[in-house]
C-alpha cells in the first residue's frame, strides 16, 4: 500500500513536470510580472491603428534608374500577411538583432494585397487595414510577404507593372516576384512620428518599400551606395522579347547572369522599411 502511494505520487509529479514543460513552449503573455494588465480592454483606453503601405514617390511618380531608364509604374502589388504592430519596451532595435518582446500587440488577420502605385503623387500612402488597438506607443511593426491568393497578382508576393523608356525605346514590363519575405522592424523614422496612439484617437503605422534599392537612383551619384548595390534596369531589359519584358523569379534566375541574380536576391530583403528606419528580414535570409 505504501509502495503504491509512493508510485502514484511520483507519477503525479511527472505529470506536473510535463505540463510545466509544455507550457513553456506555448505563446505566453510577454508583460513583465510586475506590469499591470488591466487597461487594454477597458473602455476609453483604446484607439484605432491605421496600417498603411507606401512605395514612396519612386512608385507613385516614377523615377530614373541608375542606368538611365525612365520608369513609370501602372501597378505595384504587394501581398502582405500577418501584419503585426507591437508596443515594445525597451524599444525593439532590428539592427541589434535581438528578440522582439511585445508588451502589447495587434494583428491584421488574413492576407492583404495592395497597389502601391494607387493614387497620384499627392495621395496618402495606401491604407491596408484599420484595427482597434490599446492606447500606447506602437514602436515595432512586422509583416510577411506571401504569394497573393487571388486577384491580378495571384501567386506572387510582388508584382511590378509599367513602362520603362530610354533612348527613344519604350519597354512595357511586368516583373513578378515569387520569393516569400518577412520583415521585423522597429520604430518609424520620417518627417513625422507614427504609432503614438491615444485613447479614442487614431494613429498611423507604415510599411515602406524602397524600390530604389532594386533599380538605383539616377538622381544620386553613381558611387552612392544606393547605386553601387542596385541591380538597375539594363540587366532586366536584356530579357525582353518582342519589345516586352514579362518575367518572374524563375525567368530571372534563368536569364540573368549568376552575379546579377545573386544581386537581385540580396536586394529583396532590403525592400522593407518603416519610413527611413530599417528592418530585419527573417525569411529569405534564413534560407
Amino acid at each position: 500500500m505504501q509502495r503504491n502511494s509512493f508510485k502514484a505520487f511520483t507519477l503525479g509529479c511527472l505529470a506536473l513536470v510535463g505540463l510545466a514543460g509544455c507550457g513553456s513552449e506555448s505563446p505566453t503573455a510577454t508583460a513583465p510580472e510586475t506590469e499591470p494588465t488591466e487597461t487594454a480592454s477597458a473602455e476609453g483606453d483604446r484607439g484605432t491603428l491605421v496600417i498603411r503601405a507606401n512605395g514612396e514617390d519612386f512608385v507613385r511618380e516614377g523615377f530614373t534608374t541608375k542606368d538611365g531608364w525612365e520608369v513609370q509604374f501602372d501597378n505595384v502589388y504587394v501581398s502582405l500577411a500577418d501584419i503585426t504592430a507591437a508596443q515594445t519596451d525597451p524599444p525593439f532595435d532590428p539592427e541589434a538583432g535581438g528578440t522582439l518582446e511585445a508588451k502589447a500587440e495587434v494583428k491584421v488577420e488574413g492576407t492583404q494585397v495592395v497597389d502601391l502605385a494607387e493614387g497620384d503623387e499627392s495621395a496618402d500612402p495606401v491604407m491596408v487595414s484599420e484595427v482597434e488597438a490599446p492606447a500606447g506607443r506602437f514602436n515595432a511593426l512586422a509583416w510577411r510577404m506571401v504569394p497573393a491568393e487571388s486577384g491580378p497578382s495571384e501567386g506572387y508576393t510582388v508584382w511590378m507593372q509599367g513602362t520603362a523608356s530610354k533612348d527613344g525605346e519604350t519597354l512595357p514590363f511586368a516583373i513578378k516576384v515569387n520569393e516569400e519575405l518577412a520583415f521585423t522592424c522597429g520604430d518609424f523614422i520620417g518627417d513625422e512620428r507614427k504609432g503614438i496612439l491615444a485613447a479614442d484617437e487614431e494613429a498611423d503605422l507604415e510599411a515602406t518599400f524602397h524600390f530604389d534599392h532594386l533599380f538605383g537612383d539616377g538622381g544620386a551619384p553613381p558611387d552612392d551606395s544606393i547605386n553601387t548595390g542596385a541591380l538597375g534596369f539594363d540587366p532586366l531589359a536584356a530579357l525582353a522579347t518582342n519589345g516586352t519584358l514579362d518575367v518572374d523569379s524563375a525567368a530571372l534566375q534563368a536569364g540573368l547572369s549568376e552575379e546579377d541574380y545573386t544581386t537581385f536576391l540580396a536586394i529583396l530583403p532590403s525592400l522593407g522599411h518603416v519610413g527611413e528606419g530599417h528592418c530585419e528580414e527573417v525569411r529569405l535570409t534564413a534560407l
Binding site: 505563446p27 510577454t30 508583460a31 499591470p36 487594454a40 508588451k103 502589447a104 500587440e105 490599446p134 500606447g136
Partner: peptide
C-alpha cells in the same frame, strides 16, 4: 502600461 494581448501563433513577432 496597456494590457498585454496574447501573441498569436502565426505572429511574425
Amino acid at each position: 502600461a496597456p494590457a498585454t494581448t496574447e501573441p498569436s501563433a502565426s505572429s511574425v513577432i
